[in-house]
Design a protein around this nucleic acid. Sequence first.
DNA 1: CATAAGGGTTCCCGTGACGGGAAGGTCAAG
DNA 2: CTTGACCTTCCCGTCACGGGAACCCTTATG
Lengths: 127, 127
Amino acid sequence: MNISEVGRATDLPAKTIRYYEEIGLIQPKRSANGYRSFDAQDVHRLRFLARARALGFSIEDCRSLLALWADRGRASADVRHIAKTHLKEIKDKIAALTAMQATLTELVDACAGNDRPDCPILQGLAD
Amino acid sequence: MNISEVGRATDLPAKTIRYYEEIGLIQPKRSANGYRSFDAQDVHRLRFLARARALGFSIEDCRSLLALWADRGRASADVRHIAKTHLKEIKDKIAALTAMQATLTELVDACAGNDRPDCPILQGLAD
DNA sequence: CATAAGGGTTCCCGTGACGGGAAGGTCAAG
DNA sequence: CTTGACCTTCCCGTCACGGGAACCCTTATG
């Protein structure tokens, strides 16, 4: 399986797949012509990576999750710990963004948005 | 006013202030000894920048906002447009993060988090 | 058989908004 | 005179890739 086919199968750009190999997340074999040759396990790992990335896990988290996934003797507590930590980061980000949203909404609602110069948004930023 | 004093006044790290000068957001004068010398207007602009950045505006947005702020003939519609566009980005981010949060919460709740290997989180990622 | 199209490869630079740290100049106090 | 706290520039690292150049391989077509 060549890289573009794997790209379609995993919905990942070829660039991303090469990058994942470069940083050691996958180790596809090479054909005689130098092309990467992906087997079913490579595709499996890439789909796992795509899902984990879609949930916002960092590459390093993904590396750990992949290792746990491959480890039959893992403790689910280890997986859960990574996920909970990440979940907290997400919640914190949502909280920060929600606060920004509230302030911005106020300012935008207060602004006439016409051709006159007086603007509560700029006033809010200027204090 | 030297950079560290301005840093305290604006709650911005010196590194950030130097960066803002480098990319042309401020143009503090220089003392004879080569030190940056900030006047009240510089501090004003920096405080404006700090607030805008705290609301999540990009540096380029900040550049535009600063220009509008300085322009007495501005139309508040221009300011409002920038803010509304940014607000939409924030809403989109919140939506994406909330979706991640929902999925992750499900997975984390389903996981026993003990020393056994069976883990719904990994299963969810592996499909 | 030459060539063109459509794969693949490596390599290097750019992103956004700074932070860390090195190497060195300046200034006030003891 | 030295110490310590400032300040300066410069360069590299972040994170997860994307764009593009320069070049090789394979297959189809005129």
